[in-house]
Simulated scan of single mutants.
Amino acid sequence: MTGRRVRGESERRESRQIALDERTCRLICPVAAALVGVCLTGIGLLRVVAVVHGHETLADDILSVDAVLFLIATLASYVAIRRQASGRVHWLEQIADRAFIAAMLLLTFACFVITYAVSK
């Protein structure tokens, strides 16, 4: 009796984990895609500031790398969602998750660089 209960709880936990992974990918895909656009907008604005004021910063380079990370997160989550019918690809979900977190951290760092570079 105890073996069945443990097995049942394990299956429910695994089912919840699969549902969580799918929801996470479905959230990462559109948000990361939108944040690629935010990075590109930031790069454009920084280039305008550089031309007008002659003030170069490292922030546009950081945002370029950030846009690539967000793109990786978008593509990995999209492919993981599309592969759902033929079998889950958990490693793609992990790539999407890690790339998204790294890109968010880098975006925050870029905000600090912009804030302190423009205020000088």
Rank of each mutant, 00 (worst) to 15 (best):
L35Q: 13
A50P: 01
L106T: 05
F109W: 11
D66G: 06
C29Q: 11
S119P: 01
Q17R: 12
S10G: 04
V51K: 05
T74M: 11
R88A: 13
D61Q: 00
R47A: 13
A110Q: 03
A102V: 05
F100N: 12
C25R: 01
Y116D: 03
T24Y: 04
T108F: 10
S86T: 14
R12S: 08
L35N: 12
V6M: 09
A103V: 03
Q17N: 08
S86E: 14
E14T: 07
A19V: 02
L58E: 02
L69I: 04
E56S: 11
L35T: 09
E9V: 05
I101N: 08
A85G: 06
A19N: 09
C25G: 14
A33M: 12
R13I: 15
R47T: 04
L75D: 00
I18W: 00
P30E: 02
S86M: 05
L63Q: 07
V38R: 02
I72L: 15
A117P: 02
L75N: 04
C25N: 15
T74K: 05
S119N: 08
V48L: 10
A33F: 10
D21W: 13
T115W: 07
S77Y: 10
R5D: 03
V48C: 00
L92N: 04
F112R: 03
R12V: 15
R13Y: 07
A32K: 02
A50E: 15
V65Q: 02
E9R: 13
D66T: 15
M104I: 14
V6H: 07
E14G: 00
R47N: 12
Q84H: 13
I95Y: 02
A67D: 01
S119R: 08
A19K: 06
L71M: 14
A102R: 06
C29R: 12
T115R: 01
S86W: 12
V6D: 09
L40S: 01
I95R: 00
P30I: 07
R88E: 11
H90L: 12
H53G: 11
Q94C: 06
A110M: 02
M1Q: 04
C29L: 15
F109L: 15
V52P: 04
G87V: 08
E9D: 13
S64G: 14
G42H: 02
F109H: 10
T2H: 10
I43F: 14
D66V: 08
I43S: 08
I28V: 09
Q17W: 05
L63A: 06
Y116G: 01
G87K: 13
S64A: 14
I62R: 00
D60Q: 09
D61V: 04
A85M: 05
R13D: 04
R13S: 07
G42V: 00
T74W: 06
V31L: 08
Q84L: 10
A34S: 14
E14N: 07
I81L: 07
A73F: 09
I114H: 02
G37L: 10
G37V: 08
L105Q: 02
V79N: 03
H55D: 09
A73E: 13
R16H: 07
T41E: 02
R13L: 14
V68L: 15
E22S: 05
L75V: 15
R82L: 12
A103K: 07
A85V: 14
G87M: 11
S15T: 07
A117R: 03
L46M: 06
H90N: 08
A19W: 01
